[in-house]
Structure formats: C-alpha cells, structure tokens
Design a binder for these strands. Structure first.
Lengths: 118, 118
DNA sequence: CAGCTTGATAGACGTGTGTCAAATTAGAAG
DNA sequence: CTTCTAATTTGACACACGTCTATCAAGCTG
C-alpha cells in the first residue's frame, strides 16, 4: 500500500524533512532520537565516545569530562542507549559504550537532503 | 517576528560528532537546536513547512494536520523560531513560516561524518 | 569467603515542558 | 469606529526531566 516512506524495522527510506512531509509515526520515532540529542551532556557524551580511541569508551573515560555524579552520567548513557544511538557491552569489570553509526546517519539524512547525498 | 537565533552568525565549522569531541559550549548550542527537534509536533511542523508549496506556510495551513489548539501550534512554532530553525514573516493578515536551510544543514553535518562540507 | 572497584538502580526533589481556555494584538473590511 | 478573522500571549495545570544521595549488582582478586 504505502510506497516509500516506511519504517522497515530499523531503516527509513529516504524522506528528508525538505521532501515529503513526515507522517505522525515517523515524526514520533525521529523526535525520540532528536530528543535524546537535545541535552548538552548527552550530545557531548556521544561525541566523546565517537572520538575516543577505538570508537568505544567506558564510563571511567567519560565522567572526567563533566562535573556530574556517576549516576547522572549513567542515566544519560541509558537514554542514549534506549534511543538506539549507542550500544553498551560489558567486558570484565568495565562497560564499553560505542556509537551506532547507522542511527546517526539516518538522523543526518533526515535533516540534510543536500548534504546527505554523499 | 524578530525573534532570532541565539547562535547568530557564529559557526563551529565542521566538526562532526565522529571527529573531534564537542566542547561544552558547542554541545550546549547544538543541543538547544536538537531539543527543538525533539518533539513530534515540532518535527512534523518543520517538515510540513519545508514541503509546503513555495517553501512557506501559514498557521492555517499547518494546524489542520494536528488535533491541537491554535495556541499550542503557535507555541511550537515559537520554539522552532527561537531555535533558529524557521523564520516567520507577517504579510497582511497571515504569518508565513519558512525553514532556515543553513540551520538544518549544520545539524545534519554534525551528525554525518562523511557528509561534512568545507 | 571478604573486600574492592565499576557501574546501575531507586527514590526524592526542584525545574522545565506541552497543553488548553481565555484574553489580547494585528490587520482587513464594512 | 466597529467588527470580523488570524495569530500570539497569558496564566494555569499535570507531567516529564535532570540531578542528587543512598543503595545495590557484577566482577575481579587476595
């Protein structure tokens, strides 16, 4: 029935903001991701993780950059994780966090029709 | 309608999330924009405006897409405007809203590693 | 086992946010 | 000037959110 704009499990097809208007469902899903980015601490956490050696970082690598309590950092990481923007994996004593490139790419392409054409 | 963006003219040139980690200031400014996108209604409003004929739309063109009161739509448009994502101009009885392409491009480039432009 | 370290969870507290109804401004047309 | 329509502002309310302290779980190591 529906042609293009679909939520294929995990992928949109190609409907940037400046093209076809977003459906209510698409807007809801995308807004949840943008909302996760809408906090200075989380945005910085994300960039710190992405820029960290090996593309992953444990909480101990991150918390030094903020004057926030451990639980607060943990909370923000949880929000990023539940938004699908990062993955978290426990290895031995430490939990390593890494970005999910496809998720960022998707959000980027929604905003930038011009810049998204690689 | 002279509510203008806070990031006036300022440019944190091209440092995508996956490159250099964002500073606290950069994160704060960018997070404010993402926050504005972090609501389903606002995201859909933005796409409706962008997709509307002529690249601009008045409230009367938009409010039909939502089951929300006029003041609520007006509120969301104000948030988008203060985030620098749209411009608003009054002509005669109607107020026309249009997107600010550079703002979207900037956000897109922050998220998209390979899509960074000069 | 006990003891230590890393990180997550639970609960509480103050602030921020989305929504609406009612009142208000801006302009056009009688 | 009065009246009508379009849109914003105001004030109120319930709920969500960010932060903390205190507590708990997982995993090493002696």
């Amino acid at each position: 029935m529906s042609n293009q704009p679909e939520w294929n499990g995990e992928r949109w097809c190609c409907s940037p903001v400046t093209g076809e208007p977003l459906s209510a469902e698409q807007s809801g899903a995308l807004a949840a991701s943008f909302k996760a980015l809408g906090d200075p601490v989380r945005l910085r956490l994300l960039s710190l993780i992405a820029a960290h050696e090996g593309g992953e970082a444990c909480v101990c690598d991150l918390s030094g950059a903020f004057e926030l309590s451990g639980p607060t950092i943990s909370h923000h990481l949880k929000v990023l994780r539940e938004a699908g923007l990062i993955r978290s994996e426990r290895r031995a004593t430490w939990v390593y966090h890494s970005v999910v490139p496809d998720a960022l790419r998707q959000l980027s392409s929604v905003l930038g029709p011009a810049t998204a054409r690689a």
